Amino acid sequence: MTLLHDAELTAAFDRGADSYDRLVSLNPGYHAHLRRSARRLALPDGGAGRRVLDLGCGTGASTAALAAAFPRAEIVGADASSAMLARARGRRGLERVRFVHATAEELTADGGHGPFDAVFAAYLFRNVAAPDAVLRGVHDLLVPDGRLVAHEYTLGGRRADRLVWSAVCRGVVMPLGALTGDGALYRHLWHSVLRFDTAPEFAARMRRAGFDGVRVLPLPGWQTGVAHTFTGRRHPITADGAR
């Protein structure tokens, strides 16, 4: 199938915003895994004095995970879908978050909202047309030694991982998506995982974008081998001012 991109994908997320949270909440461990990945930013003192960007924040589930992990941080959430953002803005506990209506490409290209001490990106990079450019933009938005955590459906590379993902999509995701009338969106999400990087490939992509200390961390449950947390840092400034 042809994947959705740019305005077409944004429109699909706009149409699916009302039912999206209900569907993903049926996924065992969905919110717990977001909280686990958010904590892997490892900001000290509850994030006091730190600025954190939730890039591609969607309906705010990932933003809520950040707010729980770092209650003292300044958090900015950004998404291309106005309908998704409307739900995020209405989510209890996120009143202190500043939300920005912008695509990942727009926000990372102009740097106008940075710099940030940390960037969190959940389910983002396989849904952008130019992931390398967005990764380089994220790198440039970070302060020296700033941290990126990407929480993503990226298959481990085994044939069994592809089989598990497709079985879940055929048996659960697509029937539920069809009931909401958003089958095209959920077909896209299914095939976007199959066509995107494996976990080792995405880690290599992060390194090419300039990130140091890249780590690939598995998630538990049925998502083992299907979803991963990726962590990396921008180069620190050395004593002689080099990066």
Rank of each mutant, 00 (worst) to 15 (best):
T103D: 03
A78R: 07
L34D: 01
H188L: 13
M84L: 14
M174L: 15
G114C: 05
A130R: 15
A167E: 14
A129K: 14
A150K: 06
L179V: 12
N127W: 05
H228D: 00
H31Y: 10
L23D: 01
R50N: 05
F116C: 07
T10D: 02
P44L: 06
Y123G: 13
G46E: 09
I237M: 03
V226E: 01
S37Y: 00
P115D: 14
H235D: 04
A73G: 09
R136H: 07
L26S: 08
F120S: 01
D197G: 13
F99G: 04
G77I: 06
R205Q: 12
A160G: 02
R147A: 12
L26I: 02
A209Q: 09
V97N: 12
L141Q: 06
R233M: 00
L135A: 13
L135R: 09
H188R: 02
A129Q: 11
V143R: 11
R98C: 14
G49P: 08
V168W: 13
R208H: 01
A122S: 15
E95T: 14
T198M: 11
H228S: 06
N27I: 12
R207E: 15
G77S: 14
G16E: 12
V216N: 02
I75F: 10
H33G: 07
A67Y: 07
A83Q: 14
A48H: 10
R50P: 00
W190Q: 12
A122Q: 02
L94F: 03
W165V: 03
A48C: 01
G137H: 09
A199L: 13
G60K: 08
P200N: 10
G232K: 04
I75G: 04
L53Y: 07
R205C: 02
A184V: 12
A83P: 05
R39N: 04
S62I: 00
D117K: 00
G221Y: 02
V97I: 11
P144D: 02
Y30G: 00
L219V: 06
G221K: 14
V24P: 01
A109C: 11
L3Q: 13
G60W: 10
A7M: 07
F13Y: 15
D54Q: 08
C57H: 03
A64N: 12
S192E: 10
R195W: 09
A48W: 01
L124H: 03
M206G: 08
S62V: 00
A42G: 09
A104E: 04
R91K: 15
H191M: 08
A239M: 10
L185R: 12
L189Q: 02
L219C: 08
A184T: 13
L26W: 08
V173E: 07
A32T: 03
A88W: 01
R39C: 03
A178C: 09
A203D: 12
C169T: 05
L94I: 05
R208W: 01
A86P: 02
D140L: 07
F116V: 05
R187Q: 15
